[in-house]
């Protein structure tokens, strides 16, 4: 008992430290007066934060990544949510095949996904660039969306839709008034996950992007020459933004709960 009491917090806590070490490192070195290579500490400066687009191509690649992430997420979330709904709520033929088609991308390593798509694009003679990346990201994000949303759909009581129909809501209205709002948290979670995966993806992107630069690709390419400190600044800033967004969300829902308890 004693052992279990301290073992979990200590090991768990150390693991969180392990998780955060490189992030702290990135953060600290975002204030480095680095010059060309950001390998050793050369002194404190605000410059990188004041002027994030100072190094060539950093901001451009970031904008590209954000754009790809948003578009791919929107498509993958929409398509994936529909599939999840269809799989749980409706019967149709080829279900087994559909299940396989959904699970397989999850069981396929990124190199293979990237390589096979590249083979396909080469075959079709499509020029690699923005759209080929969006397609590639959509494919691998979709399976995650399906799995996430499907769990939500199957925990949804089908009686609720029936109750809506019973209370004069057409199937369409029943969906928008009842099903969709109840699925929304799951859909949002899936979309966030999807965006994170797309934003952070390197391997698939590397296979299918041609000359199109994304943020991870930019860092990978410049790793050999030295990553500019502005990249550290952007990495830190993204981390902080993500942190704030989720924390604010949590505080709001916490407040709401408290308020409801008072009613």
């Amino acid at each position: 008992m004693k052992l279990g009491r301290w073992f979990v917090p200590v090991v768990g806590g150390l693991a969180f430290v392990y998780l955060l070490v490189p992030i702290v490192y990135i953060f600290v070195f975002s204030f480095n007066d680095a010059g060309r290579t950001n390998l050793e500490w050369r002194g404190f400066t605000w410059d990188n934060w004041a002027n994030p687009c100072g190094a060539p191509a950093v901001c451009e690649s970031l904008a590209n990544s954000l754009q790809v992430g948003i578009v791919a997420t929107l498509i993958a979330t929409a398509l994936g949510t529909c599939i999840a709904l269809g799989l749980v709520r409706y019967k149709f033929r080829f279900r087994k095949l559909t299940d396989v088609l959904i699970i397989l991308p999850l069981a396929t390593p990124e190199v293979v996904l990237g390589a096979s798509l590249l083979a396909q694009f080469l075959n079709l003679g499509w020029e690699l660039g923005y759209w080929t990346i969006v397609i590639a990201h959509t494919v691998f994000c979709m399976s995650f969306v399906i799995v996430t949303v499907r769990a939500r759909v199957s925990s949804l009581d089908p009686r609720l839709e029936e109750a809506a129909a019973d209370l004069y809501a057409s199937p369409r209205l029943a969906f928008w008034k009842v099903t969709f709002p109840l699925l929304l948290p799951g859909i949002v979670a899936a979309a966030l996950l999807s965006f994170a995966m797309s934003f952070d993806d390197f391997i698939i992107t590397n296979f299918n992007s041609g000359n199109f630069q994304t943020f991870p690709k930019f860092i990978y390419v410049s790793a050999t020459r030295g990553i500019p400190a502005q990249a550290n600044m952007i990495g830190s800033a993204m981390f902080i933004v993500a942190l704030l967004v989720v924390i604010i969300g949590q505080i709001i829902s916490y407040r709401k709960k408290k308020q409801l308890e008072k009613v």
């Binding site: 009581d157 009686r159 609720l160």
Partner: peptide, 8 residues
């Protein structure tokens, strides 16, 4: 409904 099916 048996389980009420109130919209949560």
């Amino acid at each position: 409904f048996q389980s009420y099916a109130l919209f949560p």
